[in-house]
Computed example of a mutant assay.
Amino acid sequence: MKKMISIITIILAISLLAPQAGSANVGINEKFGVPIVVYGGNLSDAEKESVAGSLNVAEEAEVEEIEVTGEDLITYIKDGDPRARMYSSAKITRKEAGEGLVIQIVTPDNITQVTSEMYANAMLTAGIEDATVEVAAPKAVTGHSALVGIYKAYEVNGEQLDPERTDVANDELEVATELADKGVEDEKVSELLTEIKKQIAEQNPATREEVEAIVEEQLSKLQIELSPEDRQLLVDLMDRIRKLDIDFSQWSTQLEDLSKTIEDKIGTVVNDDGFWQSVKDFFNKLIDGIRGLVS
């Protein structure tokens, strides 16, 4: 009986230390509507079911489910190919103004190129703010089609996105993944894009030459080496961003919030001495408990 109590105590300790489940379901958000789940149009029935499981669709009080196909590319991307294969999917839950973007790739092994920071940066360029977005795929894919699905979800939800901004955002995602493919670390790519865009927001450059100076400054600051062709690609992208109809005074704050959110997520656990002490104490007690069971 004593050993049984010890086992129960250990199990209880593990359950208390483990991350707790999310807060209780508060029901349907009547202000923003239900979460929208966008499935890649080329998913098989079995793959769609797998994605629904990854996105915890069954746990929602209610969702709206739609599909994104190659035909949708034409709406949001000027040179979109209607024959494109679409597999990556997403669940979008809109939030209150000021809450920012929270992007979670729930099947990280299956989204091979696009990172959560790349999604967030592209979404801000497209004019999408204040949402929780979960991305999933049933097999290894680059992750590009999820962004088009997010655009479609917003328009289904009554938002009107600027097609010029969505097209530039797609270019941004292409540049980001291309730089990463050529050896620049994913985190460095996201940092570079964010910092350049912050400087554009703060300095409000009037010419391409001024944009080029900002790009060169940030490349030097972050110690990133690019080929002349890739530098040109980056300048072309940022000059397009400069010309967008964006309230740069607000955009700077949003980009700063994005950077801070990433830093806070990393720093919270790493710098939390109390957390690590609790882990140490737990395992010491666990070892003592196991010794007691076998003695």
Rank of each mutant, 00 (worst) to 15 (best):
E172W: 10
R83Q: 15
F275K: 04
S220P: 12
L17R: 04
I5Q: 15
A206S: 12
Q199N: 09
L193M: 08
I262K: 10
M123T: 00
A213P: 04
I224K: 12
T177F: 02
D281Q: 13
L55Q: 08
E225L: 07
D273Y: 14
T261N: 07
I36R: 00
G40K: 11
A180W: 07
T253A: 14
D186W: 10
R208H: 02
G158R: 02
K285C: 05
G127H: 08
G70L: 09
S15W: 15
K2L: 12
S88N: 02
E99Y: 07
V38R: 04
D181W: 07
V215D: 04
V63A: 04
L286W: 13
E185T: 07
S227Q: 00
T142C: 08
E187V: 05
N56H: 10
V26K: 09
I287E: 05
T75R: 12
K243T: 05
I28N: 07
K182R: 13
V133I: 05
V156K: 05
V57G: 09
I128E: 00
F283C: 11
E225Y: 11
K197F: 06
S44E: 01
K95C: 03
H144C: 03
D264E: 06
S252C: 12
L244W: 06
Y39H: 15
A201K: 05
M1D: 13
L237V: 01
E159V: 15
V26R: 01
K285R: 10
E159F: 14
S145V: 00
G149V: 08
